[in-house]
Amino acid sequence: MPRSEDFNRDEVLDKAKQVFWMKGYNGTSMQDLVDATGLNRSSIYNSFGNKMELYQQSLKKYQDESGCLFNRVKEKNRNAMESVGLAFLYVLDEMVHDKENKGCMLINCFTEMGNQDEALLGLLEANQEKMHGVFEDLVKQGQEDGSIRTDESSDALAHYLVSAFQGFRITGLGVRDPKILKGIIQNILKTIA
C-alpha cells in the first residue's frame, strides 16, 4: 500500500516552480529541489515523478496561474482595443515589479527547452493556442465595434498579437523603463488599429 503524503502537495509544487522559474530546467539540480521543498529525493520521485515530470507539473501550475491575466482583462468590459492594451499593461506592471528578473516561465521554457522534449512542446503549443484564441476573440470583437482594422483576418491579427506579446515579455527582461515599454505597447496597438 502506498504511503500517504504528509505534506501540502500544492505548496511543494509552488516551491519547485519558483526554483525552476529562477534557474530554468537545466540550471536546477535535484539538490536544489530538495533544498527548496524540504522533501528528500525519494519523496520527490515517489510523489511527483522524475525531474522532467516535476518541471511539467510546475509549468502547468504557472500556466493556470498566469491565465488569470486574460480573465482580469475580460472582467473590465471595455472595447476590444482597450482590452488588448490592458493585457499588455498588466504584463508591463508585472515586468516592472519583477525584481528578480525572472520573466515569463513559459517563454523561458520555450527558449531553453522548446525543441528538446515533445511533452513540453505540446504544453507550450497548447498555451499558445489558448492565447491565440483569446486574442482572436478580442480582435473579432474589435472588428465588430470598429476599434480594430478589418483589412486582415482576425486569425492573422491574433497571430501577430501572440508574437508581439511574447516578444514584449522577452524585451522586458532587458528593458525596465516603463516609458519605453509603454511606447512599445502604443506601437503594437497602432499596428492593429
Rank of each mutant, 00 (worst) to 15 (best):
E65V: 00
S47M: 00
V84R: 03
L33R: 05
L59H: 05
A16H: 10
G167I: 05
L13M: 05
L120T: 15
K23M: 02
S154C: 06
D145G: 07
F135N: 12
C109F: 03
G146E: 12
K74C: 05
G167S: 00
E100I: 01
F48D: 02
L138Y: 11
M1Y: 06
G24C: 02
S163Q: 08
A164H: 01
Y55F: 14
S154Q: 06
N108D: 06
V91L: 11
S4F: 02
Q63F: 06
I184D: 01
K61R: 13
N71I: 04
T150H: 11
R78P: 02
M113W: 07
A193C: 08
K17F: 09
D32N: 12
F7M: 12
K140W: 03
N187E: 11
L173I: 08
G183V: 06
L39V: 00
K140G: 10
N115P: 00
S147L: 03
E152H: 13
D137R: 15
D155M: 01
V175Q: 15
K130R: 15
Q31T: 08
G122D: 14
E152S: 15
K99N: 11
V91N: 09
Y45H: 02
Q56F: 01
M81K: 08
G133Y: 10
S154V: 00
D35S: 13
S43D: 02
M81W: 09
Q128P: 00
E82M: 04
E112K: 10
M131P: 01
I170V: 10
N77P: 03
T28K: 12
A36Q: 05
E94A: 09
R149M: 09
F48C: 00
G133K: 14
Q56P: 00
V139I: 14
A36W: 13
F70Y: 08
V73F: 08
S163W: 01
G24N: 06
R149Q: 09
Y25K: 14
E112Y: 05
G142T: 06
K179P: 00
L59W: 05
R176D: 08
Q56K: 08
Y62L: 02
I170L: 14
G27Q: 11
E100S: 10
G85S: 03
M52N: 02
D32T: 06
Q141S: 15
N187K: 11
L123W: 10
L33N: 06
L86V: 03
R72M: 11
A193L: 11
V162E: 02
A126K: 14
K51E: 00
V162S: 03
W21K: 13
G146R: 13
R176C: 04
D10A: 15
V73H: 04
E152W: 08
R9S: 01
L89D: 09
L189W: 06
L124M: 15
R41L: 13
I185G: 02
D10T: 15
M22N: 10
D64P: 01
K182W: 05
Y160E: 08
E82L: 00
K179F: 13
Q166S: 04
Y90N: 10
I188M: 05
E118K: 14
